[in-house]
Amino acid sequence: MSEPAILLTALAVLLGLARVFGAVAAKLGQPAVVGEITCGLVIGAVGWRVQVHVGGTLDALAQFGLILFLFGAGGRLAPSVRSVKTALVPALGATVVPFGLGALLALWLAGRHAPAGHLVFVLFAAAAMAVTAFPLLARILAERDMLCSGDGRRALSAAAITDALAWTALAFVAGSLHGSRVWTLALLVPVLLVLYFLSKPWFGALLSRLSRPATVVIPLACLSAAATDAIGLHAALGAFLCGVAIGPSAAVAEPVGSVLVPLFFVLVGRKVELSGITPLLAVETVVIIVVAVLGKSGGAYLGARAAGEPRRSALVFATLMNTRGVTELVFLGIGLDLGVIDGGFYAAMVVMALVTTAMTGPLLNRMPLWDKVC
């Protein structure tokens, strides 16, 4: 069989299995990404392999899907930034507390899981603990008709703030690995200036007059991703920032991204070495889950109460902010690619992301009904 035939067959099999596992997860009341990661775990456990060249092409396609996915996610994030003031205090609670607890936990783990040094590991692990899955959160809110509720808007705005801070920390981590963080971030300035001009109304008006805006915005997403990759940061950062700049027009990339991004999550699951989970790593995983839940939910609850929210709204907010899902997995994948974390910590954090994501639906089902405003 020729190499293109092998590639197309492997792509069809992986995407088909991802769809099946995702559908099963949805039937169980879980996000499809839980099923897609599980699919990758199963594939890795049975030892399924492809030719080296084919595997490299699959990884490239998965990365392209990730770029388009984060580009669209950035576009969805942009409108929520307009209402961040009302969610600032709750967001700080949902960011500072898990970040602090994550840093303390990382100090304990650094001796065993920090291949690139303790400082970057602690900063990365703390930021990873603070992440909220903004795109998945929006999907959960839409499925439950909560997008128009006060609880939903507050959670989305807080997730926007939290993830912006986490991605900023990731930029520092990535830049510090290339010898001069200051110069790396300085090279980011012209990229940000270009994106600033693209965020102006004139560019949105130009896109609205095009019959096929995807032919413009997708290449821009790729160029932005290539620019951040070329200066030593991760390509995903550029795609995300480009989506934030362009705004809702980035949604035209979602059809392609939605087809390919399951491949990324299947390959994410495949990277988890289940055979390498030792009793010590199992204990560390349990501790990570406990600290993640207490830090994120506890910090979010305290932040909401400090902002004057009633107990019920604070509980709903804490439950929603505990959702890690897709964003956490992307974050971890970048950390693994950068060499900031090792395979053991990666596996433990993937399990944490799946557990905290799986908790959201059942916990929301036990919450009192919320007021809808639309």
Results as ranks from 00 to 15, higher is better:
residue 132 T to F: 02
residue 132 T to S: 12
residue 133 A to L: 05
residue 134 F to P: 00
residue 134 F to S: 00
residue 134 F to R: 04
residue 134 F to A: 07
residue 135 P to A: 05
residue 135 P to Y: 01
residue 135 P to S: 11
residue 135 P to D: 02
residue 136 L to G: 06
residue 137 L to V: 03
residue 137 L to I: 11
residue 139 R to Q: 14
residue 139 R to F: 14
residue 139 R to N: 09
residue 139 R to L: 14
residue 140 I to F: 04
residue 140 I to P: 05
residue 140 I to S: 03
residue 140 I to Y: 06
residue 140 I to V: 07
residue 141 L to E: 00
residue 141 L to S: 03
residue 142 A to L: 06
residue 143 E to C: 08
residue 143 E to M: 07
residue 144 R to K: 08
residue 144 R to F: 11
residue 145 D to A: 14
residue 146 M to L: 05
residue 146 M to F: 13
residue 147 L to W: 12
residue 147 L to V: 09
residue 147 L to E: 09
residue 148 C to I: 04
residue 148 C to L: 14
residue 149 S to C: 01
residue 149 S to A: 07
residue 149 S to M: 15
residue 150 G to R: 14
residue 150 G to K: 09
residue 151 D to H: 15
residue 152 G to C: 05
residue 152 G to V: 01
residue 153 R to N: 12
residue 154 R to E: 06
residue 154 R to C: 13
residue 155 A to I: 01
residue 155 A to V: 11
residue 155 A to G: 15
residue 157 S to A: 12
residue 158 A to S: 11
residue 158 A to L: 12
residue 159 A to V: 00
residue 160 A to W: 03
residue 161 I to A: 09
residue 162 T to G: 15
residue 162 T to W: 14
residue 163 D to S: 11
residue 163 D to Q: 10
residue 163 D to H: 15
residue 165 L to R: 00
residue 165 L to M: 14
residue 165 L to G: 11
residue 165 L to T: 14
residue 166 A to H: 15
residue 166 A to T: 15
residue 166 A to S: 13
residue 166 A to K: 04
residue 166 A to P: 13
residue 167 W to K: 15
residue 168 T to W: 10
residue 169 A to T: 03
residue 169 A to C: 13
residue 170 L to A: 12
residue 170 L to K: 09
residue 170 L to V: 03
residue 171 A to P: 13
residue 172 F to D: 05
residue 173 V to N: 10
residue 174 A to V: 06
residue 174 A to E: 08
residue 175 G to F: 11
residue 176 S to G: 11
residue 176 S to M: 06
residue 176 S to R: 10
residue 177 L to I: 02
residue 178 H to W: 01
residue 178 H to M: 10
residue 179 G to P: 08
residue 179 G to N: 09
residue 179 G to A: 05
residue 180 S to N: 04
residue 180 S to L: 11
residue 180 S to M: 11
residue 182 V to G: 08
residue 182 V to F: 13
residue 182 V to T: 13
residue 183 W to A: 08
residue 183 W to Y: 02
residue 183 W to K: 11
residue 184 T to E: 03
residue 184 T to C: 01
residue 184 T to I: 01
residue 185 L to V: 07
residue 186 A to H: 10
residue 187 L to E: 06
residue 188 L to R: 05
residue 189 V to I: 03
residue 189 V to Y: 01
residue 190 P to W: 08
residue 190 P to G: 02
residue 190 P to L: 02
residue 191 V to I: 02
residue 192 L to R: 02
residue 192 L to Y: 07
residue 194 V to D: 03
residue 194 V to T: 13
residue 194 V to E: 05
residue 195 L to H: 00
residue 195 L to Y: 02
residue 198 L to A: 08
residue 198 L to F: 05
residue 198 L to G: 00
residue 199 S to R: 09
residue 199 S to Y: 04
residue 199 S to G: 08
residue 200 K to Q: 15
residue 201 P to I: 02
residue 201 P to Y: 10
residue 201 P to R: 06
residue 202 W to G: 12
residue 202 W to H: 13
residue 204 G to E: 11
residue 204 G to V: 01
residue 205 A to F: 04
residue 205 A to V: 11
residue 205 A to H: 10
residue 206 L to H: 13
residue 206 L to T: 15
residue 207 L to T: 00
residue 207 L to P: 15
residue 207 L to N: 03
